[in-house]
Nucleic acid binder design. Structure first.
Lengths: 349, 349
DNA sequence: ATTAAAATGGAAATCGATTTCCAATATACT
DNA sequence: AGTATATTGGAAATCGATTTCCATTTTAAT
């Protein structure tokens, strides 16, 4: 579909120029406050611009300058709590630096992710912040981005094999800490409910989990380590199975609060109690974690902060480039996440 | 800040034209699949475009065509569950119609809302979807939008006095229904916890609440009808006060689930029980409503659907305009919301 | 007063794609 | 064959702002 807005006529610098009898170029300079224009003219121009209700056309300027002041974001789901918080952070920072934000969602599919990237390139964005979809296993589209000299910043769900700025949580470390916390509460048979296996964030969390058990000298039956059960429903079903089995876990560490919710239902369903019989630790510190019964221990990923810092990489780089255009090192930032201990894992008073 | 991307050189239609020895205009026509170009050339052009890794520059096309295929959204908070769901709906529809989405948040302040609108005008968006901030009491910035022939669609938090497309929930009706539900459960002293008074959505909900009480012939002490307590903290404090007073309510109808959360804490704090002693109905059907203890009765606003329908107004209009450019009637759509009955308000089995 | 230097405003090219004419060629029709 | 009619591709203008010179004017300096 291709649509023509019935546009009367947009006021341009030419209109301003004509009205006060100067050249359009002078108007541009005046509006941009260049030193080569006298204050007298600047005042005139600004007044007339206001009078005519002039609005700068960023698209036109963009074309000429080769810069759009546009930042693109691609996430699996706009309305997942974690991502919407990150986006809020990004937006805040962009606003501070007078940049605009274009947001696309991949819907967890690879095709739409690629399309989103293409779209952002078409829009001539200056920077792309991306968190990969579940399906994404190749990175030609990322290469496409850097090939066109667009800054690329991957966050949370990243492809580590692809060189770019990367910003993630200290997933392994915090997972280790969380599981140690469970151990300290006397839980011994701690099961793991993970996400899609190839996603680094989940791999890391699993590593941390395994490390904690190892350091405690605990052996876990293989059935207790399950991948791809981050959805509530699947977690519920799997938890029921395990708890009914002949070697039931006495605690769950999971990579998502939604999974934790499913586990909680399963526990209640079987007439067990949390935290007395079975402990739970979730991940993401969703709003609902402090509203559940019992309240849920979870991991605060500092999502807003991640958004702030991710975009800050880009803006900082701008400042650097102004001084030193050759600067191009890739940063990898790790955001410290914390275990928020609530009732679901506290059985020692 | 003003930044220059170190751009090697973007491949343009001129490059394609030069390589195969035809005119740039022909390349444009070929890529746009105009009938005035032979298939032979079209094939050549497409092949060469792929070979050179050409990407269309929407900004340039936008400038020439006067259309950006861009849709702007302004919301108080990107990461509030309701808004992020609406945005997800909008994004889905935009994707379907091959439009891009620019998102701004007003942070509930009027200044930033005005800036956001200005920004979107600068970007030459074809349509603006807006939900007003708490502070917004004037509408010059909305006038600004329609004056520039940009489609304006207000949703949820709207200024009814300003003529535009409007899409809202059936707030009054559903509030009435919710309060009647409370009455049916035997609650009599039902308090109201509202939001900022001048926002129509809240006004409507209050109207529905009052209507339900009136139709039941119930008189409510004025202290039980409180505005501007949609935040969790404030709701908590106010609920404690009321419950400790000498005419305590036996139920709360509130315009926000967060307020409901605060009320729930207050009730627990005072050693009372929900739903036995005090009933609660929230609003928005946030994720956590089914995780609380007891689960929270709430109102499902169908936020995603609101997003879909809101943007659809715009796209439908496009189709109409193509046939009949004079068409310009303003639609007001009402989305039916439903009461989701859960434990917090069910004391009759 | 004369020359040099600094300040100020303008003309024109430019960014990349679209679109309006127009010219040239091809096809159809007496 | 000769005229009329389609087809097809190109030249040039255009969208709105920026930017690079360049020309003039003003100020400073001797």
């Amino acid at each position: 579909m291709n649509v023509q807005r019935s546009k009367e006529k947009r006021i341009t610098i030419h209109d301003i120029a004509r009205e006060i009898g100067i050249a359009p170029s002078s108007v541009s300079k005046a509006l941009n406050n260049l030193p080569t224009i006298s204050d007298r003219i600047k005042v005139l121009v600004r007044a007339k611009a206001k009078e005519l209700n002039y609005v700068h056309n960023s698209g036109a300027a963009n074309l000429r300058k080769g810069t759009s002041q546009l930042v693109g974001v691609v996430v699996p789901r706009i309305n997942a709590a974690f991502f919407s918080d990150v986006i809020a952070g990004i937006e805040e920072k962009c606003f501070e630096y007078n940049h605009r934000l274009i947001i696309c969602q991949s819907d967890e599919t690879f095709v739409r992710e690629v399309q989103a990237v293409e779209t952002l390139i078409q829009q001539n964005v200056d920077c792309i912040l991306i968190s990969l979809s579940k399906e994404t296993k190749t990175n030609l589209h990322l290469k496409e981005i850097v090939d066109r000299n667009i800054e690329l910043i991957q966050f949370d769900r990243v492809d580590e094999s692809f060189k770019s700025h990367i910003i993630v949580n200290d997933n392994e470390k915090v997972a280790l800490k969380a599981v140690k916390h469970l151990l300290s509460q006397g839980y011994k048979q701690i099961a793991y409910f993970g996400g899609a296996e190839h996603i680094p964030a989940y791999k890391e969390r699993k590593k941390g989990y395994l490390a904690a058990l190892k350091s405690a000298g605990i052996n876990i039956p293989y059935q207790h380590v399950v991948d791809d059960v981050s959805q509530k429903e699947r977690a519920y079903i799997t938890a029921i199975e395990l708890l009914k089995g002949n070697n039931p876990p006495d605690a769950f560490f999971t990579v998502s609060d939604h999974a934790a919710l499913g586990i909680l239902s399963a526990i209640k369903e079987l007439g067990l109690k949390t935290p007395e019989d079975v402990g739970i630790v979730g991940f993401a510190n969703e709003t609902f974690t402090e509203a559940t019964c019992p309240t849920l221990t979870s991991i605060d990923q500092q999502s807003r902060k991640m958004g702030l810092m991710a975009s800050d990489i880009f803006f900082k780089k701008f400042r650097e480039k102004e001084k030193q255009p050759s600067l191009r090192k890739q940063e990898t930032l790790v955001i410290k996440s914390t275990v928020v201990i609530r009732a679901s894992s506290s059985r020692k008073k």
